[in-house]
Design a protein around this nucleic acid. Structure first.
Length: 595
DNA sequence: CTTAGGG
DNA sequence: CCCTAAG
């Protein structure tokens, strides 16, 4: 297992103990089978590598899965002692697949991915060229736009940048790596300039020089915002510059301690993503140059350069540092983070192109030699896409909708017990019939819909219904639940696992319960009043009560029209609503006193 | 695990 | 309903 490569590190702030947890590529001999297998190791004080404990792994994954994946991704830039080539190839595989997916719409499946490259970005480049202020860009489509944005930004900030000619003579300066590394013979290399020379830049080109050094912090922050679409409060110039640089170059090999900006240029950083194909190919060769790059700009001041190398844990750093720099009021939830990155993405990506916005979707599935299917998704984090291996820790709770799509083959099995859907499918374990069945026995949803002119009639009907349900329980319900309970969205995902309309009896029971135990004592209400309804968790009760309150108050003013809302939902008898309101008022007023 | 709230 | 943050 072990090629030991320093990746996650320099997180002294984070793991300021003697040991740091880092991620290393899993490069055992038969690793081909699993492109996204990484191993966590801990670097002990003496530099030894110790297998990370589960907790540590968890910690890493939890505290920052993005960064973890980051680190993983950045691995490719490291001079791996193990089998760089293999690693690269693996990367290549997934990249290619990605590419295929990305451009699946306008390109016929071709075994020669390289050939298809040029057209890939053609449209973007064309578009880009029309943009006056566009400086040379050599990044994938999405990044292109970003850059454009960025450059405008720089314009405003009067950052010096000179537009580079689109023709081939632009090798100047920065992109040393590229010119060295790209194989001249590669189809792409030849095809691109030839086909596109007149109307689009060569991919090997480098964008204009950007001088972050001279920018005041404020400008840096602005730049940061422009780059990542969000504000930052960090005042650390160094951090900002580095962060921006990383965002701009979409590269991770920005040394922690040193700016990658040298002589007013981005130095030693190759756009990792100049066009995907390039990226792929360059991955192999990049090793050498990039390692040297480290030496070049890897050490100039400040002793934070570790013996172990450069920090690639920038995502974490991003979070942790930023956090540190500006106390965040509230800890962002995972979802928040996701959304943030999504918005980030959108705000940066100026317009259309669905593919861009779908970036965070599952993007590639690499089927490795074995039967193991690895799903990865790309997380647009801080302006950089990161491929995140779908490992079990990524999401510990119920999988998101689209996950269901992946499970499609099992859906039939699932449908059979749609009601039981609560079980956690995450770990690719097909739900075993046994594990789920239980709750299917609840009262079946009732079709109280029409004929409800008579409330009392309804009520009794409902009650009967409930009883009946209890009797015949699990058997017949499945059909209903499949339709109403787990509607399949177009994408194939499941919107909700089960939607069970509240029967009137349930509502009344709830109201009773509230009157008895008080609103908020959901667990008690559930325990006592709802013991017979296996479903309806305390949360459900709470939610329902909330809805009832809403309904009651919403409807009360014009009492007349209230009794039934025309929409399908249940028509809650007015008297119940009245009860609800009474209770609500009582409860909201009384608590201070006694009761 | 339970509540409270936002989505 | 679902998902989370806080207790």
């Amino acid at each position: 297992m072990g090629t030991v490569v320093g990746t996650v590190e320099d997180c002294r702030e984070m793991f300021d103990v003697s040991a740091q947890t880092r991620i290393t590529p899993f490069s055992s001999t038969n690793q081909i089978g699993n492109p996204v297998a990484y191993k966590l190791v801990r670097v002990a004080g003496d530099g030894r590598l110790v297998p990370a404990t589960d907790e540590e792994i968890l910690e890493v994954n939890e505290t920052d899965m993005h960064s973890a994946s980051d680190a993983c991704q950045s691995l490719r830039y490291l001079p791996t002692e193990g089998s760089p080539f293999r690693l690269s190839q693996l990367e290549e595989t997934s990249e290619v697949i990605n590419l295929g997916l990305l451009r699946a719409d306008n390109v016929e499946p071709s075994t020669d991915q390289v050939n298809s490259q040029p057209e890939y970005s053609e449209e973007f480049l064309q578009k880009a060229q029309q943009d006056e202020s566009l400086v040379m860009v050599s990044t994938p489509p999405d990044a292109n736009i970003q850059f454009r944005n960025e450059n405008n930004m720089f314009d405003e900030d009067q950052v010096h940048h000179e537009p580079l000619p689109f023709s081939s003579d632009v090798q100047n300066g920065c992109d040393v790596n590229q010119s060295n590394t790209v194989e001249p013979s590669s189809p792409k290399e030849t095809a691109l300039p030839a086909a596109a020379a007149s109307q689009k830049p060569d991919f090997a080109l480098v964008r204009g020089e950007i001088c972050l050094d001279n920018l005041p912090i404020k400008a840096l922050q602005e730049t940061f915002r422009a780059t990542f679409g969000r504000e930052t409060t960090v005042k650390d110039k160094t951090w900002l510059k580095r962060r921006i640089t990383m965002g701009l170059t979409k590269s991770f090999d920005v040394p922690t301690t040193n700016l990658t900006i040298k002589d007013n240029k981005l130095v030693g950083i190759k756009d990792k993503s100049n066009d995907v194909s390039d990226d792929v190919r360059a991955t192999n060769v990049k090793e050498a140059p990039s390692s040297s790059a480290y030496h070049v700009n890897g050490h100039s001041k400040d002793a934070s350069a570790h013996s172990l190398g450069v920090n690639h844990y920038w995502a974490t750093e991003d979070l942790s540092c930023e956090e540190r720099a500006a106390k965040r009021v509230r800890k962002p939830t995972r979802r928040y983070i996701e959304e943030l990155s999504e918005t980030d993405d959108k705000s940066v990506v100026i317009s259309k192109d669905q593919r861009l916005s779908e970036k965070s979707e599952v993007r590639s599935m690499s089927v490795s030699s074995g039967k193991r299917v690895t799903v990865t998704r790309v997380v647009p984090l801080g302006g950089s896409e990161v491929e995140v291996p779908y490992v079990s820790h990524v999401r510990r709770s119920r999988p998101r909708e689209n996950f269901m799509a992946l499970m499609e083959c099992h859906t039939s099995c699932l449908e059979a017990k749609a009601t039981g859907g609560e079980s956690n499918l995450l770990n690719s374990e097909v739900v075993s019939p046994g594990s789920v069945v239980k709750s299917a026995s609840g009262p079946i949803q009732k079709e109280v819909s029409h004929n409800n002119t008579n409330e009392e009639n309804m009520l009794t009907e409902a009650d009967q219904d409930v009883e009946a349900d209890h009797v015949d329980s699990s058997g017949n319900s499945s059909d209903d639940y499949n339709n109403t309970g787990a509607p399949m969205m177009q994408g194939g995902g499941v919107r909700r696992k089960h939607h069970r309309a509240w029967t009137l009896s349930e509502v009344t029971t709830l109201v009773e319960g509230v009157s008895k135990y008080g609103a908020g004592k959901w667990s008690e209400i559930k325990r006592f009043s709802f013991s017979s309804y296996s479903h309806r968790t305390s949360v459900d009760l709470k939610d329902k009560w909330r809805n009832l309150l809403r309904a009651s108050f919403a409807q009360s003013p014009s009492n007349n029209m209230g009794s039934f809302k025309k929409h399908g939902s249940m028509h809650i008898p007015v008297d119940i609503l009245l009860q609800v309101r009474e209770l609500a008022e009582k409860q909201s007023l009384v608590p201070p006193n006694h009761r």
